[in-house]
Amino acid sequence: MATDRPVVVYPPDEEGGRRVRVDGQISGRAYSLGDVAAFMQEAGLQSFDEMDVVRSALIEWRGGGPETWTD
């Protein structure tokens, strides 16, 4: 399924991390909303914080929403 959202947060792995893809490139693994916010900031959205991550329509959450950090 294709998406027009530039950020994808994948399901949690066995260690509780979630891969984060920004504009087609894997940015790293997030263990919290703060980590996702940091990836967004690195991508140029410097003012993004944890609440922006929760509310943003730019992010596609797979395998659970922003409250899911364990598999």
Rank of each mutant, 00 (worst) to 15 (best):
M1E: 14
M1Y: 09
M1D: 12
A2E: 15
A2T: 15
A2H: 12
R5Y: 00
R5N: 03
P6N: 07
V7S: 02
V7L: 10
V7Y: 05
V8T: 15
V9Y: 12
V9I: 11
Y10Q: 07
Y10W: 04
P12M: 04
D13M: 01
D13N: 13
D13I: 00
D13C: 00
E14Q: 05
E15F: 10
E15M: 06
E15G: 00
E15H: 11
G16D: 02
G16C: 03
G17H: 02
G17M: 01
R18A: 05
R19I: 09
R19S: 14
R19E: 15
V20Y: 06
V20N: 08
V20C: 09
R21I: 07
R21S: 15
R21F: 09
V22H: 09
D23W: 06
G24M: 05
G24D: 07
I26H: 03
I26F: 06
S27A: 15
G28Q: 05
G28R: 01
R29E: 03
R29Q: 03
Y31F: 12
Y31T: 05
S32Q: 06
S32I: 08
S32C: 07
S32W: 02
L33N: 14
L33Q: 13
G34D: 11
G34A: 08
D35Y: 02
D35V: 00
A37V: 11
A38L: 05
F39Y: 13
F39M: 10
F39K: 06
M40K: 02
E42M: 11
E42F: 03
L45M: 06
Q46P: 00
Q46E: 12
S47H: 13
S47C: 06
D49Q: 14
D49S: 12
D49K: 15
M51K: 13
M51C: 06
M51T: 15
D52Y: 10
D52N: 14
D52W: 10
V53D: 09
V53S: 06
V54Q: 09
V54S: 04
R55M: 14
R55G: 06
R55Q: 13
S56Q: 13
A57P: 07
A57K: 12
L58W: 09
L58E: 14
I59P: 00
E60S: 04
W61E: 11
W61S: 08
W61V: 08
W61P: 07
W61M: 09
W61T: 11
G63Y: 08
G64M: 09
G64I: 07
G65I: 07
G65W: 02
P66N: 05
P66D: 06
E67H: 10
T68R: 10
T68Q: 09
W69K: 02
W69S: 04
W69F: 13
